[in-house]
Structures are given as C-alpha cells and as structure tokens.
Nucleic acid binder design. Structure first.
Lengths: 204, 204
DNA sequence: TCGTTGTTTAACAATTTTGTTAAACAATTA
DNA sequence: TAATTGTTTAACAAAATTGTTAAACAACGA
C-alpha cells in the first residue's frame, strides 16, 4: 500500500464532493472524480461500490455540514434581531467557503425530492422552526415589529443569503463583475442582508 | 402525414421544455421527450438533429420569455416604488406559470456558464440595469430612501421573488406545506415581497 | 391517382459510462 | 520473510444513450 486506508478515502471524498458539486449527479463522471483524486477508477469502486453510494455519502455529509449550525442558532435564546444577524453571518460565511453547495443541494433536491428528503430526515438535524416561529409571533403581538408571517420572514432571510451564490453567473453577467468584484459584493452582503431584513420589519 | 409540420414541432418543443426543465440537460433523456410528445425518437431527430440543438432552442426560448418583461419595466419612467411593485408582481406571476424555469436556468448557468452566457447575449434582451441604477442613486441622494448600493437592492428584489421557487422542496419540508399550501404561500408573497423591499429602504 | 411529406417501426451502429476482474506490484506488519 | 492490504494497469462486460437508416405506411394536395 502507498497511503493508509483512511487517507485515500478522504482524498476520494474530497474529489467526489468537488466534482458532484460542480456538475451535479447526472453530469458527474466517475473518471473525473478519479482524476481529481489522483487515482484510478478501479480504486474508486474498491472504496465505494457505486456512483450512487458515493453520492449519498457526499450529500449526507454536505447537509450534515449546514444544518447543525442553523439549528443551533434557531434554538438559542438570543433576541430576534440578534438571531437574524447570527444566521445571516453564518450562512454567508458558510456559502463563501463552499460556494457551489447551495446550488448543488437545490439542484438535487429539485430532481429527486423524495430521495433527498429522506437523506435530510435521516440526518436528524433538520431544524425545527417552531421555536423561532413562536418567537416571531410574540414580537409581532408585543408590537415590536410589523405584522409578518414567520414563514415569510424566514424565507426572506435565507433567500437574501443564499440567492447570490446560486445566481452567481447572472450577477457576473448583469453587473459585469470580476471574480474579485463578486467576492467584494458578497462581503458587503454580510452587513446588508441583516440590515435589510431588520429594516423591513422594524416599525416606522 | 398525420399532423402538419408546425403542429408536431410545437408538440416536441413543449415536451422538450417540460423534460429539460424537470431534469436539466444532463439527466434529460431523448426517449422521455419523445414519450411526453407522444411520438418516437426517430421523429425527434428528424425535426431537431441532436439533443444539443433541441436544448439550445428551448433555452433561448425560455430566456426570451423572461427578459423582455423585465427590460420593459426597468426602462420605464415609473417611480422607484412603483417599479419595484411591478417587477415583483410580474416575476412571481411568471414563475408561478413556469415554476421549474428559475431553477432550470440557474442550474444550466452554473454548469456551462460560458455557453449559456452566449445564449443570453444573443437574445439581445439582456436588461441593462444602468438606468435603474441611476434612478436608485438619485433617490438616495435626494434623501428619499436610505443609502443602499443599487446592485444590492436589485439582487434583493430578485432573490425574494425567485428563491421560493428554487427552494420549493425545502420549503415543503421545513414548513410541512401541501401543494395547496405552497400555492397559497406564493400568492401571499406577491404582496409581501414588494412590501418587504420598500420597508427596507424607506427612511424611518 | 401519383408524388410528397410526415410518421412509425425496428433494427442497428457508435459512443459513453459504469462496473468488474485478473494479474502484477508495493509497502507495511506480523 | 511471508501474509496482508492498498494500488495500478489493462482489458473487458454490461448497460444506457444517442444518433442513423431502411422499409413500410398514411394522409393530403396536385
């Protein structure tokens, strides 16, 4: 042997993640994964029997990566505006580190909703929005924010965080941004998203 | 012959659009398109030589369908808040009628940015945001709205409109919505998105 | 009625992709 | 040093998919 068991397994997983996220399941090629891992296809199947199995591992890992952080914030005892700031900061930071991930998850989710929903449920980290929903409802009743349905507020938060990553090529195209310009744009959003959301629900 | 030239061509295009949008280019199968069109694969190639050619036709048609409307609003002389209301209403209406389209465009755009950007440019309907950008800058200078960079404001608008369609399966999952419930949720957003955006830039 | 055009059927070629296998080899461990 | 485990090579089997072709047929217009 050249490297130990665990090391190549990790190399393969890293390569597989990269290729699956760039291409999506259907367009991903085992050969490309092998190349990117610096090994051959035979060894790929030696470690992970099939493309499907490899994919499931990657996908589970990916969502296991996002969900706990969101769950933690949602369940915390922080005040609403604070939570919004935490969620946006965390989400944008995360997507900055793994820019292909949101589009990848969404893509596969749209193509095999049932299968993917299973993987989500199996992860046992699906955030339960009920506590946060209640918190929002109470802020509304207390008159601290304008009346808004919690579901819409939450979708607004996630939308503003995630969408720019998903629509990156369009943003490049429409605003004529360079790679550098896009990075800068994203950094700005760390402040702007929370501010936008909070302004939108503050009482005037 | 059974139907005239133009009729089957249209039937094929409709089927192809449906399949490409559900599956994306890589996962779409010529057989499925033929089935959905109620014809056979041979005839598919008789009309459109290859999968690629068929795809390009579908994609060009799809963007040719979105862009003019947005362009029209952007270039109009309406006041800013009015424009925001028009854009959101139009966008959500459009995505309601073609719910797979946003995810589809985004997916292909992420997978072949160069090729797809070409198709966008060829369409000659790429909205030029400069006029709207100027309008926003002026509203800021006039003190009518809080200071915000136009690019962020525009991205916010599109994000709030489009994201729910792209993330439909997640929304179903997290909020436990039925198909009916989702439709309802979208209808609510027609009002909420414009309101959210306008609140977020109004002076307090 | 004849020719044209659209259409189906069925078979098939070509290509791509996934997955398997056997043989040889390398490095580590007992 | 011998057994084990990881790894490569290369060839190949199997399946899926795209694209082509020839033959027959149906409908319509000239």
């Amino acid at each position: 042997m050249t490297a130990d068991n665990n090391q190549t397994e990790q190399v393969i997983l890293t390569a597989a993640k990269s290729v699956f996220m760039k291409r999506g399941f259907a367009a991903a090629r085992m050969q490309e994964i092998a190349d990117e891992a610096g090994i051959n296809r035979a060894l790929l199947h030696y470690y992970f029997r099939s493309k499907e199995k490899l994919f499931e591992k990657i996908f589970s890992e990916a969502i296991g990566n996002i969900l706990p952080g969101v769950k933690e914030i949602i369940d915390s005892d922080a005040a609403l505006f604070e939570k919004i700031e935490q969620i946006t900061a965390r989400y944008i930071q995360f997507a900055t580190e793994q820019p292909y991930l949101p589009a990848f998850v969404i893509q596969e989710l749209n193509q095999h909703p049932d299968k993917i929903q299973m993987l989500f449920k199996e992860s046992n980290n699906l955030p339960d929005p009920r506590k946060l929903v209640k918190q929002i409802d109470e802020e509304v009743k207390a008159g601290n924010i304008i009346p808004i349905q919690p579901a819409h507020l939450l979708v607004n938060v996630i939308a503003l965080c995630v969408f720019p990553f998903v629509a990156k090529p369009i943003i490049h195209l429409v605003f004529g941004l360079s790679e550098e310009g896009f990075k800068n744009f994203i950094q700005e959003r760390k402040k702007i998203v929370a501010q936008t959301i909070i302004n939108s629900i503050k009482k005037h």
